[in-house]
Simulated scan of single mutants.
Amino acid sequence: MMKELKKQFYLRWNDLALILLLQTGLFLFGEIVIAVMVHGMNDRESIFPFGTLLALLVPFILMLFLGMYSLPVCFNMAIGMGTTRRRMLPAFIGISLLQYFLGAGMVYLCCLLEKWIFRIAYAGIENELDMQTVFQWKYIVPACIALAAWNTWMGAVYMKYEKKAFLFFWVLWMTIFIGGFRINRMLEKQYDHPFLRIYVKVAEWFREFPESAVLPAIVLISAVLIAVSYRILCRQQVQSHSGNR
């Protein structure tokens, strides 16, 4: 297994480096934006941890779709070189978890650094959001497991259905993004619409679930996605430039 983990790491170290560099750049950009707003625009009522938020959200969105491309590459190379599917998939998930834990650790360091910057450079200005409360193991572990399972499932589905899967995920993403934006605007304007009433009821229903039930449910759903992915990959042929074999 260690040999397979090393193979996967060598295949994907550039993804890890990309995420860490992206987080660093986004954090620095966020700090520049805050400095411009406070010192350039003289907005001193409150500040927002923009650097940490950027370092978290943008790479997270990128990692949501990374598995669609990384799994097919790793699968074709590993299986083509004689690795069994039973060994390849755990190694892929293991490196995915390593990548996500390191990414979460990087964001946590950004959070601590930003809080220190706020205390030194913006003393007396209210911080609107303390993101350090998010960085607890009970949240990080299920989130990383869920992200690894989601990426594995996306990659497996993409390998099986190719362009149809890409179109499905693209439509799903645009529906969530655009639909969520429009729903928020309608809620802000207090529109009275049957769909909005249903949305509010469902949201309230989900909020009532305790963490002790939600977090294990996330892990369970992740296990199901991994099992489905394994079933798909068991029947998947290696793809090469000259065709399938």
Rank of each mutant, 00 (worst) to 15 (best):
M1K: 05
M2W: 10
K3I: 12
E4S: 12
E4K: 01
L5F: 15
K6C: 02
K7V: 12
Q8I: 06
R12M: 15
D15Y: 10
L16I: 15
L18Q: 06
I19D: 06
L20F: 09
L21W: 10
L21M: 14
L22P: 00
G25A: 10
L26K: 03
F29D: 02
A35I: 04
A35V: 01
A35D: 14
M37G: 00
R44L: 04
E45K: 08
E45W: 02
E45A: 11
E45S: 12
E45G: 12
F48D: 05
P49T: 09
F50I: 15
F50N: 03
F50W: 09
T52E: 07
T52C: 14
L56I: 14
V58S: 00
V58R: 06
P59K: 10
F60G: 08
I61N: 09
F65W: 14
F65N: 09
G67A: 10
Y69A: 12
S70G: 01
S70N: 07
V73S: 08
C74R: 05
N76D: 15
M77Q: 09
M77K: 05
A78L: 05
A78G: 12
I79A: 09
T83M: 14
R85C: 11
R87K: 13
M88A: 02
I93K: 06
I95H: 09
S96W: 06
L98F: 13
L98I: 11
Q99S: 09
Y100H: 13
G103D: 06
G103F: 00
M106D: 01
Y108G: 03
L109M: 13
C111F: 02
L113P: 04
E114F: 00
I117A: 11
F118G: 00
I120H: 12
A121P: 00
A123S: 14
G124Y: 03
N127G: 01
E128D: 12
E128Q: 13
D130C: 10
V134N: 04
I140Y: 12
I140K: 06
P142Q: 06
P142L: 02
I145R: 10
L147V: 07
M154Y: 14
G155C: 10
G155N: 03
A156H: 04
E162T: 11
K164V: 08
F168N: 01
W170G: 13
V171G: 06
L172I: 08
L172E: 07
L172T: 11
I176W: 13
G180F: 09
F181I: 13
F181T: 13
F181N: 14
L187S: 01
P194A: 14
F195P: 08
L196V: 05
R197V: 09
Y199V: 04
Y199P: 01
V200P: 00
K201T: 13
A203H: 08
E204Y: 07
W205P: 02
F206H: 07
F206N: 12
F206G: 03
E208F: 09
F209H: 06
P210W: 13
P210N: 08
E211I: 11
P216Y: 06
A217T: 14
V219Y: 03
V219K: 10
V219G: 08
L220K: 02
S222C: 05
A223N: 00
A223W: 04
L225I: 01
I226P: 00
V228C: 13
V228H: 03
Y230Q: 09
Y230T: 12
R231D: 07
I232M: 14
I232W: 02
V238S: 02
V238T: 04
S240L: 12
H241E: 13
H241I: 12
H241N: 11
R245I: 07
R245M: 03
